[in-house]
Design a binder for these strands. Structure first.
Lengths: 336, 336
DNA sequence: TTGTACGCGTTATCAT
DNA sequence: ATGATAACGCGTACAA
């Protein structure tokens, strides 16, 4: 059905090699180029990708692996933001994207599908302290860029933000506005972000001479864990809560409202991510803005760099974050 | 670097063809099979996908095209639900998924990437009344399954729900509870769902002997259009609003709250989709449940059918919907 | 049951 | 500048 180079060669009266040169921009006499181009247009020829990949070793396709619990993956806009960013950057260079989603991709499944010469490179989320899939990718010869990174990934290429520093900044903000008992609802145990954010929280709390373990409760990045954790923290008498992400903070606001507590007068609340809904919460949420879209697109660009300059060694990108102060911590603007 | 069939043949002292048979389950003597298997395990051999595709004509990869405005695509959980469903069903059969997202895929871009022998089939959203990409896919020889469909797609394979009927049912519900002036905030002009839902609304309104055009305002499936549209409808004196989707309904609830109107006492509100947040709105939202996840997975399964039985003709699946009545239309359960 | 040999459609090298 | 021709790695008739 589909036309091949040989067909075009016959149609335009040149050799297959010449047609290939025209297609790929090789050295061809202007006259012949014109002639072949005309046939190309007329027949709507498209090179076969499998054949091209086999012959050249490059596919123009990269893999994206998001090894995340589906409950989070498909509900938290954080991940669609990453996908959006990657999709943009990849489409810009007309490179294709193969996707593996969810937590069912065991190492097995992974190298069955991934390491088969069909992919020029891979972008993978490295959000777990232990992740055999990431390990396997890094051990393999396939160019890989991580989104996030573990301590062990210092020599890999990655795009990340400094969660520890950002959490410290946010916690310090809560202390600066006079809060004495700042609690923290942590993220999913086992995730790097959860660990880093606790670490930043602790650092700030300790610097203030307070007990860093007193007011930390477990969570899992969901709204539900915000509901539950907040009830616990209220009983512990907090006057501020730093939630591991915006979804959790949404739950915290609900729980406080149910208990009839005012935000921020009674309890200040802060989140992390600055997803779109954060500014629409009631009250609008103080949070850490990490450019999620930028992380996605930067990961793709980093992979391009890796592919274009294979000898340059790993590339590590740490994107900036920003403290966004809204009414959930500072209250209404005073109108005197 | 990567091992080839020839390498394995040498290692196990048989011909390449025999190794291939072992890998693909052809007829091989049990003794040799054992011997070759051992080598396969030891060397962790993976067939090269490009070569296999070229030789066999099948890739084990399907394309997924979501030709949607990024503003909607990455914010409305409807689309992540579809993706989730497809991802599940595809992973189950270990088939890969190539993704094209957003609205930048002009017909050109599309056949540059899509029609190149690398894809066994395609799943594409058919949400627009006019969509050259869908047209191009259907004209091509590549097996294609639509999610949604236009009138012109009657002979294509698709997975859809009966939006007209569901919208009729929902509108009828609003009339049944005694509302006299039922308004509608429509979806994005040009989308099939928007048109069908208006049609269903009109049908029910007309059946009740009312003016079907009186209380319809434009929208675009976003929360913002819910805010704006509701303000208009309030001024027109509605006592119920059917919103084209849940996001719009969320905006409607906000706008009503701002105006100090009670839901449902003053104005009843209903949405469409029954996404997860619908039940958490204040008050919980009456809406139409369409199994979004099921639509995605069913689309994938339909594509499998198409691939397995190419001569069976098109397959049309219409999934059921369900009216989910919550407090936004019937108010609190009376405690006498 | 097993091996030989050709074809899949392209890129890339080497002559011409 | 152009044309043969050899890879690329695998599937699969066909032969043995």
């Amino acid at each position: 059905m589909a036309l091949t180079l040989d067909d075009l060669a016959a149609l335009s009266g040149v050799s297959r090699a010449t047609v290939s040169r025209v297609v790929n921009g090789g050295p061809v006499a202007e006259a012949t180029r014109q002639r072949v181009m005309e046939v190309l247009q007329r027949t709507n020829y498209r090179p076969n990708l499998a054949a091209r990949t086999l012959a050249s070793g490059r596919s123009g396709v990269v893999g994206v692996v998001m090894h995340i619990d589906p409950r989070l993956l498909f509900n938290d806009p954080y991940f669609s933001g990453l996908l959006h960013g990657m999709s943009n950057a990849l489409a810009e260079k007309a490179v294709g994207m193969m996707l593996w989603l969810g937590d069912r991709t065991r190492e097995e499944t992974l190298d069955q599908i991934l390491l088969r010469g069909m992919l020029d490179g891979v972008i993978v989320t490295a959000h777990w302290l232990e992740d055999p899939i990431v390990d396997g990718l890094l051990e393999s010869s396939i160019p890989t860029v991580l989104i996030g990174h573990r301590h062990a990934d210092r020599n890999a290429s990655y795009v990340d933000v400094d969660d520890v520093q950002a959490a410290d900044t946010l916690t310090t903000h809560l202390l600066d506005i006079g809060r004495q008992r700042v609690g923290h609802i942590a993220g999913l145990p086992g995730s790097v972000a959860a660990a880093d954010r606790v670490a930043g929280y602790r650092r700030a709390i300790q610097r203030a001479g307070l007990d860093p373990d007193d007011l930390v409760v477990e969570g899992d990045f969901t709204r539900e864990s915000g509901l539950v954790g907040t009830k616990t923290l209220i009983d512990l008498g907090v006057d501020a809560i730093f939630c591991a992400n915006d979804a959790t903070a949404g739950g915290a606001l609900e729980a406080l409202r149910e208990r009839g507590l005012r935000v921020p007068e009674d309890v200040a609340v802060a989140g992390y991510d600055d997803l779109e809904f954060a500014a629409r919460l009631d009250p609008p949420l103080t949070t850490i803005r990490q450019g999620v879209l930028a992380q996605g697109s930067e990961a793709a660009r980093t992979l391009f760099q890796l592919l274009d300059h294979p000898d340059d060694g790993p590339r590590r990108i740490v994107l900036p974050t920003e403290l966004v102060v809204r009414r959930s911590t500072i209250g209404a603007v005073r109108s005197e």
